[in-house]
């Protein structure tokens, strides 16, 4: 099957699961964070001298990214829960389609949902910076760069949660492990670069806090993790079949 068809197939499967409404609602909730936060104390933020995007993200990204990662973890669980709940997976494994193809179809859906989240949030940050920081020119380039970086940082987390969800037949097991991993990730000290490369910790990183070199290293790490997690999943699925 073509990639497009695989994605369409997975989109058909998530009907009535509340997957898309959850991401839309979650995105709007996360988007409200900078607006509400700034609306309550505009003078505090407007008085700062840093670029508006840095101020807005610095004050709100921790909260916003937390929502993003939790939604990604829950979304991944839903994507596999529908396969396991009524044993649809058994039917799938007797059809001429690779289990790894299904995995990558789901990964594409999850990453697209992540794009949706980030897009809503980017619009909000853009609006806030225009509304409260009118002294600066419209910061669209900075926002695009930041959110491009956020998307890259979200991909390994999405793949890892999906791999976790595919390994656990029980929704609550994968959800529990995922949430624990996310909270563990928030406790990782920012100065320990190696530790912040934990896939669930990367979505919390902000480019405004780092130099170009460090940003590049994060980007490389995210790409590397994406490849490693994908390859591992393909191997795990193969091995699981052998021991079935």
């Amino acid at each position: 099957m073509s990639t497009m068809n695989l994605i369409r197939l997975e989109l058909k499967k998530i009907k009535r699961t509340g997957f898309l409404p959850a991401f839309l609602g979650g995105g709007i909730l996360a988007a409200a964070v900078p607006a509400v936060n700034t609306a309550f104390r505009p003078e505090l933020f407007a008085g700062l001298s840093a670029p508006p995007v840095s101020i807005l993200l610095g004050a709100n990204w921790q909260m916003m990214s937390m929502l993003n990662v939790l939604l990604i973890v829950a979304g991944a669980c839903v994507l596999y829960h529908i396969e396991y709940a009524d044993n649809a997976m058994r039917k799938m494994s007797t059809l001429p389609v690779r289990e790894s193809s299904l995995f990558f179809g789901k990964a594409a859906v999850l990453i697209l949902a992540g794009v949706l989240l980030l897009a809503i949030e980017a619009v909000s940050v853009f609006g806030c910076s225009i509304y409260w920081f009118s002294r600066a020119a419209a910061p669209s380039a900075g926002i695009l760069k930041s959110f491009g970086f956020f998307l890259l940082m979200l991909i390994p987390a999405a793949l890892l949660s999906l791999a976790l969800a595919s390994a656990c037949r029980n929704l609550w097991t994968s959800l529990g492990i995922g949430v624990v991993c996310v909270f563990a990730a928030t406790m990782i000290p920012a100065q320990r670069f190696a530790l912040t490369l934990f896939p669930f910790a990367m979505p919390f990183q902000m480019p405004v806090n780092h130099t170009g070199d460090v940003i590049r290293n994060y980007a490389i790490a995210a790409a590397a993790e994406t490849i490693v997690i994908s390859l591992s999943e393909v191997i795990i699925l193969k091995v699981r079949r052998i021991f079935a």
């Binding site: 197939l9 058909k12 499967k13 009907k15 009524d86 649809a88 058994r90 007797t94």
Partner: peptide, 23 residues
């Protein structure tokens, strides 16, 4: 094979449509 396997959140028709797409 053995126990029925299907997507519980989909209708009968939608379930078959999933299989149709794969085939």
């Amino acid at each position: 094979i053995e126990a029925p396997s299907f997507y519980g959140n989909l209708t009968g028709e939608e379930n078959l449509d999933i299989i149709r797409r794969i085939l």
